[in-house]
Design a protein around this nucleic acid. Structure first.
Lengths: 171, 171
DNA sequence: TATTGTTATACTCTATAACTATA
DNA sequence: TATAGTTATAGAGTATAACAATA
Protein backbone atom coordinates (compact mmCIF):
# COMPACT_ATOMS: atom_id res chain seq x y z
CA UNK A 1 0.00 0.00 0.00
CA UNK A 2 2.83 2.35 0.72
CA UNK A 3 4.19 3.62 -2.48
CA UNK A 4 3.81 7.32 -2.72
CA UNK A 5 6.81 8.66 -1.02
CA UNK A 6 5.38 12.08 -0.63
CA UNK A 7 4.82 14.02 2.46
CA UNK A 8 5.04 17.50 1.28
CA UNK A 9 5.00 19.41 4.45
CA UNK A 10 2.55 22.02 3.39
CA UNK A 11 0.45 21.52 0.33
CA UNK A 12 1.08 19.45 -2.71
CA UNK A 13 4.37 19.80 -4.28
CA UNK A 14 4.92 16.84 -6.51
CA UNK A 15 7.52 14.53 -5.01
CA UNK A 16 10.99 15.05 -6.40
CA UNK A 17 11.75 12.58 -9.22
CA UNK A 18 13.76 9.61 -8.06
CA UNK A 19 15.67 9.12 -11.28
CA UNK A 20 16.13 5.41 -10.78
CA UNK A 21 12.54 4.28 -10.95
CA UNK A 22 9.34 5.60 -12.38
CA UNK A 23 7.68 8.29 -10.32
CA UNK A 24 4.00 8.87 -10.58
CA UNK A 25 1.94 11.92 -9.90
CA UNK A 26 -1.07 11.44 -7.68
CA UNK A 27 -3.48 14.30 -8.43
CA UNK A 28 -5.72 13.11 -5.58
CA UNK A 29 -3.07 13.68 -2.97
CA UNK A 30 -4.25 17.20 -2.10
CA UNK A 31 -7.92 16.29 -1.88
CA UNK A 32 -9.69 16.15 1.46
CA UNK A 33 -11.98 13.35 0.32
CA UNK A 34 -9.09 11.18 -0.81
CA UNK A 35 -7.08 11.65 2.35
CA UNK A 36 -10.17 11.01 4.46
CA UNK A 37 -10.88 7.77 2.66
CA UNK A 38 -7.31 6.50 2.93
CA UNK A 39 -7.02 7.46 6.59
CA UNK A 40 -10.42 6.05 7.39
CA UNK A 41 -9.86 2.69 5.71
CA UNK A 42 -6.43 2.34 7.31
CA UNK A 43 -7.67 3.03 10.81
CA UNK A 44 -10.79 0.92 10.32
CA UNK A 45 -8.76 -2.06 9.16
CA UNK A 46 -6.49 -1.72 12.16
CA UNK A 47 -9.49 -1.51 14.48
CA UNK A 48 -11.06 -4.58 12.91
CA UNK A 49 -7.82 -6.42 13.55
CA UNK A 50 -7.71 -5.18 17.14
CA UNK A 51 -11.24 -6.47 17.79
CA UNK A 52 -11.09 -9.67 15.79
CA UNK A 53 -10.55 -12.08 18.67
CA UNK A 54 -13.54 -10.58 20.49
CA UNK A 55 -15.59 -11.64 17.47
CA UNK A 56 -16.77 -8.07 17.11
CA UNK A 57 -16.67 -5.87 14.07
CA UNK A 58 -16.07 -2.16 14.53
CA UNK A 59 -19.72 -1.31 14.01
CA UNK A 60 -20.82 -3.87 16.59
CA UNK A 61 -18.28 -2.66 19.12
CA UNK A 62 -19.48 0.92 18.66
CA UNK A 63 -23.03 -0.20 19.44
CA UNK A 64 -21.87 -1.89 22.64
CA UNK A 65 -20.10 1.29 23.77
CA UNK A 66 -23.14 3.40 23.02
CA UNK A 67 -25.40 1.13 25.04
CA UNK A 68 -22.89 1.14 27.89
CA UNK A 69 -23.00 4.91 28.00
CA UNK A 70 -26.78 5.11 27.56
CA UNK A 71 -28.63 2.32 29.35
CA UNK A 72 -32.15 1.80 28.01
CA UNK A 73 -31.39 3.34 24.66
CA UNK A 74 -33.36 1.86 21.76
CA UNK A 75 -32.10 0.44 18.48
CA UNK A 76 -33.56 3.27 16.47
CA UNK A 77 -31.90 5.83 18.68
CA UNK A 78 -28.54 4.11 18.31
CA UNK A 79 -29.00 4.13 14.57
CA UNK A 80 -29.77 7.83 14.51
CA UNK A 81 -26.71 8.66 16.59
CA UNK A 82 -24.22 6.42 14.79
CA UNK A 83 -25.64 6.79 11.31
CA UNK A 84 -26.78 3.18 11.02
CA UNK A 85 -30.07 2.39 9.31
CA UNK A 86 -32.79 0.83 11.44
CA UNK A 87 -32.75 -2.11 9.10
CA UNK A 88 -29.06 -2.67 9.68
CA UNK A 89 -29.39 -2.37 13.45
CA UNK A 90 -31.73 -5.36 13.67
CA UNK A 91 -29.21 -8.15 13.02
CA UNK A 92 -26.62 -6.43 15.23
CA UNK A 93 -29.02 -6.22 18.16
CA UNK A 94 -30.15 -9.78 17.58
CA UNK A 95 -26.59 -11.07 17.57
CA UNK A 96 -25.63 -9.18 20.73
CA UNK A 97 -28.75 -10.49 22.45
CA UNK A 98 -28.11 -14.04 21.38
CA UNK A 99 -24.55 -13.81 22.69
CA UNK A 100 -25.76 -12.53 26.03
CA UNK A 101 -24.08 -9.16 25.67
CA UNK A 102 -27.29 -7.17 25.99
CA UNK A 103 -30.61 -7.67 27.70
CA UNK A 104 -33.67 -6.58 25.82
CA UNK A 105 -36.46 -5.57 28.07
CA UNK A 106 -39.80 -4.92 26.48
CA UNK A 107 -41.08 -1.55 27.57
CA UNK A 108 -43.57 -0.61 25.09
CA UNK A 109 -44.48 -3.36 22.76
CA UNK A 110 -42.55 -1.71 20.05
CA UNK A 111 -39.60 -0.06 21.81
CA UNK A 112 -37.00 -2.36 23.29
CA UNK A 113 -34.75 -0.56 25.78
CA UNK A 114 -31.30 -2.11 25.58
CA UNK A 115 -28.97 -2.67 28.52
CA UNK A 116 -25.68 -4.45 28.86
CA UNK A 117 -25.60 -7.70 30.79
CA UNK A 118 -22.86 -8.33 33.31
CA UNK A 119 -20.85 -10.00 30.56
CA UNK A 120 -21.64 -7.06 28.32
CA UNK A 121 -20.14 -4.62 30.79
CA UNK A 122 -16.97 -6.65 30.93
CA UNK A 123 -16.88 -6.74 27.15
CA UNK A 124 -17.43 -3.00 27.02
CA UNK A 125 -14.41 -2.48 29.24
CA UNK A 126 -12.30 -4.67 27.03
CA UNK A 127 -13.44 -2.78 23.94
CA UNK A 128 -12.48 0.49 25.57
CA UNK A 129 -9.02 -0.83 26.29
CA UNK A 130 -8.52 -2.13 22.76
CA UNK A 131 -9.67 1.13 21.24
CA UNK A 132 -7.41 3.18 23.47
CA UNK A 133 -4.37 1.23 22.34
CA UNK A 134 -5.51 1.29 18.74
CA UNK A 135 -6.09 5.04 18.67
CA UNK A 136 -2.77 5.72 20.31
CA UNK A 137 -1.00 3.99 17.43
CA UNK A 138 -2.36 6.54 15.01
CA UNK A 139 -2.10 9.56 17.24
CA UNK A 140 1.35 9.04 18.72
CA UNK A 141 3.10 11.05 16.03
CA UNK A 142 0.78 14.02 16.41
CA UNK A 143 1.52 16.71 18.97
CA UNK A 144 -1.16 16.50 21.68
CA UNK A 145 -2.54 19.89 20.80
CA UNK A 146 -3.05 18.78 17.22
CA UNK A 147 -4.92 15.66 18.23
CA UNK A 148 -7.92 17.39 19.70
CA UNK A 149 -7.88 19.95 16.93
CA UNK A 150 -7.93 17.22 14.28
CA UNK A 151 -10.86 15.43 15.86
CA UNK A 152 -12.76 18.67 16.28
CA UNK A 153 -12.11 19.70 12.69
CA UNK A 154 -13.33 16.37 11.38
CA UNK A 155 -16.47 16.70 13.45
CA UNK A 156 -16.99 20.08 11.87
CA UNK A 157 -16.49 18.71 8.37
CA UNK A 158 -19.29 16.17 8.45
CA UNK A 159 -21.56 18.10 10.76
CA UNK A 160 -21.36 21.17 8.59
CA UNK A 161 -24.89 21.66 7.43
CA UNK A 162 -23.65 24.74 5.74
CA UNK A 163 -24.03 28.32 6.69
CA UNK A 164 -27.54 28.45 5.38
CA UNK A 165 -28.58 25.38 7.30
CA UNK A 166 -29.00 23.17 4.27
CA UNK A 167 -27.69 19.66 4.64
CA UNK A 168 -25.01 18.24 2.42
CA UNK A 169 -25.82 15.16 0.43
CA UNK A 170 -29.36 14.81 1.72
CA UNK A 171 -29.93 11.18 0.95
CA UNK B 1 -11.90 7.91 26.33
CA UNK B 2 -14.46 6.64 28.71
CA UNK B 3 -17.65 8.43 28.28
CA UNK B 4 -17.02 11.64 29.94
CA UNK B 5 -18.57 14.60 28.43
CA UNK B 6 -15.75 15.08 26.06
CA UNK B 7 -13.05 17.39 25.76
CA UNK B 8 -13.09 18.93 22.34
CA UNK B 9 -10.02 20.95 22.58
CA UNK B 10 -11.45 24.16 21.37
CA UNK B 11 -14.02 23.94 18.69
CA UNK B 12 -17.44 22.34 19.00
CA UNK B 13 -19.00 22.17 22.38
CA UNK B 14 -21.65 19.50 22.58
CA UNK B 15 -25.07 20.97 21.99
CA UNK B 16 -26.60 22.17 25.24
CA UNK B 17 -29.08 19.67 26.70
CA UNK B 18 -32.53 20.42 25.48
CA UNK B 19 -34.42 19.50 28.64
CA UNK B 20 -37.48 18.62 26.64
CA UNK B 21 -36.07 15.60 24.87
CA UNK B 22 -33.72 12.82 25.80
CA UNK B 23 -30.05 13.58 25.44
CA UNK B 24 -27.63 10.81 24.73
CA UNK B 25 -23.96 10.55 25.36
CA UNK B 26 -21.84 9.46 22.44
CA UNK B 27 -18.61 8.04 23.84
CA UNK B 28 -17.25 7.72 20.31
CA UNK B 29 -17.38 11.42 19.70
CA UNK B 30 -13.79 12.08 20.76
CA UNK B 31 -12.32 9.20 18.79
CA UNK B 32 -10.26 9.84 15.69
CA UNK B 33 -11.46 6.64 14.03
CA UNK B 34 -15.10 7.50 14.53
CA UNK B 35 -14.78 11.05 13.25
CA UNK B 36 -12.78 9.81 10.28
CA UNK B 37 -15.42 7.28 9.39
CA UNK B 38 -18.29 9.75 9.67
CA UNK B 39 -16.48 12.45 7.71
CA UNK B 40 -15.33 9.98 5.09
CA UNK B 41 -18.74 8.42 4.49
CA UNK B 42 -20.38 11.85 4.32
CA UNK B 43 -17.95 13.23 1.78
CA UNK B 44 -17.92 10.00 -0.22
CA UNK B 45 -21.69 9.96 -0.47
CA UNK B 46 -21.67 13.56 -1.64
CA UNK B 47 -19.01 12.78 -4.21
CA UNK B 48 -20.96 9.77 -5.48
CA UNK B 49 -23.94 12.05 -5.92
CA UNK B 50 -21.81 14.63 -7.73
CA UNK B 51 -20.56 12.02 -10.19
CA UNK B 52 -23.74 10.01 -10.63
CA UNK B 53 -24.83 11.45 -13.95
CA UNK B 54 -21.39 10.74 -15.40
CA UNK B 55 -22.07 7.08 -14.57
CA UNK B 56 -18.86 7.01 -12.57
CA UNK B 57 -18.34 5.90 -9.05
CA UNK B 58 -15.75 7.70 -6.92
CA UNK B 59 -13.22 4.89 -7.32
CA UNK B 60 -13.62 4.88 -11.08
CA UNK B 61 -13.26 8.64 -11.30
CA UNK B 62 -10.08 8.49 -9.25
CA UNK B 63 -8.64 5.98 -11.71
CA UNK B 64 -9.44 8.28 -14.63
CA UNK B 65 -7.67 11.19 -12.93
CA UNK B 66 -4.63 9.09 -12.18
CA UNK B 67 -4.34 7.95 -15.79
CA UNK B 68 -4.77 11.54 -16.96
CA UNK B 69 -1.85 12.61 -14.80
CA UNK B 70 0.26 9.57 -15.69
CA UNK B 71 -0.14 8.45 -19.30
CA UNK B 72 1.01 4.86 -19.87
CA UNK B 73 0.54 3.87 -16.26
CA UNK B 74 -0.44 0.23 -15.74
CA UNK B 75 -3.35 -1.21 -13.79
CA UNK B 76 -1.11 -2.69 -11.16
CA UNK B 77 0.63 0.62 -10.66
CA UNK B 78 -2.70 2.40 -10.24
CA UNK B 79 -3.70 -0.18 -7.70
CA UNK B 80 -0.53 0.28 -5.69
CA UNK B 81 -0.93 4.05 -5.64
CA UNK B 82 -4.63 4.20 -4.81
CA UNK B 83 -4.75 1.15 -2.57
CA UNK B 84 -6.91 -0.91 -4.91
CA UNK B 85 -6.22 -4.62 -5.30
CA UNK B 86 -5.11 -5.81 -8.72
CA UNK B 87 -8.13 -8.07 -8.78
CA UNK B 88 -10.43 -5.13 -8.25
CA UNK B 89 -8.74 -3.01 -10.90
CA UNK B 90 -9.58 -5.48 -13.66
CA UNK B 91 -13.30 -4.80 -13.98
CA UNK B 92 -12.72 -1.05 -13.64
CA UNK B 93 -10.19 -1.00 -16.48
CA UNK B 94 -12.41 -3.23 -18.59
CA UNK B 95 -15.38 -0.94 -18.11
CA UNK B 96 -13.42 2.21 -18.93
CA UNK B 97 -12.03 0.54 -22.04
CA UNK B 98 -15.42 -0.65 -23.16
CA UNK B 99 -16.79 2.85 -22.75
CA UNK B 100 -14.01 4.33 -24.82
CA UNK B 101 -12.56 6.34 -21.95
CA UNK B 102 -9.15 4.71 -22.10
CA UNK B 103 -7.05 3.10 -24.80
CA UNK B 104 -5.16 0.00 -23.84
CA UNK B 105 -2.03 -0.45 -25.85
CA UNK B 106 -0.20 -3.70 -25.48
CA UNK B 107 3.41 -3.01 -24.67
CA UNK B 108 4.67 -6.05 -23.16
CA UNK B 109 2.37 -8.93 -23.47
CA UNK B 110 1.49 -8.67 -19.85
CA UNK B 111 1.67 -4.94 -19.10
CA UNK B 112 -1.00 -2.78 -20.66
CA UNK B 113 -0.07 0.90 -20.57
CA UNK B 114 -3.26 2.92 -20.15
CA UNK B 115 -3.95 6.26 -21.81
CA UNK B 116 -7.03 8.42 -21.98
CA UNK B 117 -8.83 8.70 -25.28
CA UNK B 118 -9.97 12.07 -26.54
CA UNK B 119 -13.31 11.46 -24.84
CA UNK B 120 -11.44 10.36 -21.76
CA UNK B 121 -9.60 13.66 -21.55
CA UNK B 122 -12.87 15.53 -21.76
CA UNK B 123 -14.30 13.31 -19.06
CA UNK B 124 -11.25 13.91 -16.91
CA UNK B 125 -11.80 17.65 -17.16
CA UNK B 126 -15.40 17.28 -16.13
CA UNK B 127 -14.41 15.11 -13.17
CA UNK B 128 -11.94 17.74 -12.05
CA UNK B 129 -14.63 20.39 -12.15
CA UNK B 130 -17.12 18.28 -10.21
CA UNK B 131 -14.57 17.43 -7.57
CA UNK B 132 -13.51 21.03 -7.15
CA UNK B 133 -17.10 22.10 -6.46
CA UNK B 134 -17.67 19.11 -4.23
CA UNK B 135 -14.56 19.69 -2.12
CA UNK B 136 -15.35 23.36 -1.74
CA UNK B 137 -18.66 22.48 -0.09
CA UNK B 138 -16.85 20.72 2.72
CA UNK B 139 -13.96 23.12 3.03
CA UNK B 140 -15.74 26.44 2.83
CA UNK B 141 -16.23 26.72 6.58
CA UNK B 142 -12.57 26.05 7.31
CA UNK B 143 -10.07 28.90 7.35
CA UNK B 144 -7.76 28.46 4.34
CA UNK B 145 -4.76 27.84 6.53
CA UNK B 146 -6.57 25.01 8.28
CA UNK B 147 -7.49 23.34 5.00
CA UNK B 148 -3.98 22.49 3.94
CA UNK B 149 -3.08 21.57 7.50
CA UNK B 150 -6.00 19.16 7.72
CA UNK B 151 -5.11 17.41 4.48
CA UNK B 152 -1.46 17.18 5.48
CA UNK B 153 -2.34 15.80 8.90
CA UNK B 154 -4.58 13.14 7.41
CA UNK B 155 -1.82 12.15 5.03
CA UNK B 156 0.43 11.77 8.00
CA UNK B 157 -2.10 9.65 9.88
CA UNK B 158 -2.38 6.88 7.32
CA UNK B 159 1.16 7.13 5.99
CA UNK B 160 2.61 6.82 9.45
CA UNK B 161 4.56 3.62 9.22
CA UNK B 162 5.62 4.35 12.72
CA UNK B 163 8.82 5.75 13.99
CA UNK B 164 10.46 2.36 13.88
CA UNK B 165 9.39 1.80 10.32
CA UNK B 166 6.90 -0.95 11.07
CA UNK B 167 3.65 -0.75 9.21
CA UNK B 168 0.32 -0.53 10.90
CA UNK B 169 -2.16 -3.28 10.21
CA UNK B 170 0.11 -5.20 7.87
CA UNK B 171 -2.42 -7.30 6.07
C1' DT C 1 10.51 -17.27 -9.84
C1' DA C 2 8.12 -13.00 -10.04
C1' DT C 3 4.71 -10.01 -12.18
C1' DT C 4 0.42 -8.71 -14.95
C1' DG C 5 -4.01 -9.33 -15.72
C1' DT C 6 -8.02 -12.09 -14.85
C1' DT C 7 -11.99 -14.78 -12.69
C1' DA C 8 -14.42 -16.29 -8.83
C1' DT C 9 -15.81 -15.56 -4.40
C1' DA C 10 -16.77 -13.63 0.16
C1' DC C 11 -17.24 -10.19 3.79
C1' DT C 12 -18.45 -5.60 5.57
C1' DC C 13 -20.95 -1.52 5.36
C1' DT C 14 -24.56 0.90 3.44
C1' DA C 15 -29.17 1.60 1.27
C1' DT C 16 -34.16 0.91 0.06
C1' DA C 17 -38.60 -1.28 0.06
C1' DA C 18 -42.01 -3.56 2.34
C1' DC C 19 -44.07 -5.79 6.08
C1' DT C 20 -45.91 -6.30 11.33
C1' DA C 21 -47.19 -4.54 15.48
C1' DT C 22 -47.78 -1.15 18.17
C1' DA C 23 -48.78 3.89 19.49
C1' DT D 1 -50.69 8.44 10.56
C1' DA D 2 -46.23 7.74 12.61
C1' DT D 3 -42.79 4.89 14.87
C1' DA D 4 -40.04 0.45 16.25
C1' DG D 5 -38.45 -3.53 14.77
C1' DT D 6 -37.87 -6.89 11.14
C1' DT D 7 -36.85 -9.27 6.63
C1' DA D 8 -35.17 -9.35 2.10
C1' DT D 9 -32.32 -7.56 -1.20
C1' DA D 10 -28.96 -4.83 -3.60
C1' DG D 11 -24.92 -1.98 -4.35
C1' DA D 12 -20.21 -0.57 -3.41
C1' DG D 13 -15.63 -1.31 -1.49
C1' DT D 14 -12.41 -4.45 -0.02
C1' DA D 15 -10.07 -9.00 0.50
C1' DT D 16 -8.03 -13.66 -0.82
C1' DA D 17 -7.06 -17.61 -3.74
C1' DA D 18 -6.00 -19.40 -7.93
C1' DC D 19 -4.96 -19.45 -12.74
C1' DA D 20 -2.72 -18.26 -17.53
C1' DA D 21 0.49 -15.65 -19.96
C1' DT D 22 4.67 -13.43 -19.89
C1' DA D 23 9.14 -11.78 -18.20
Amino acid sequence: MANSRDHNGAMNDPPPPAADRAVFDNPLDGLLGYQLRRASTAILADLAHSLADLRLRPTEASVVLLIAANPSITQSEIGRILGIQRANMAPIAAMLTERGVIDRSRADGRSHPLRLSEAGRALSGEIHARIATHEARFLRDLPPTERAALVATLRQVWNADGVGGRALSPR
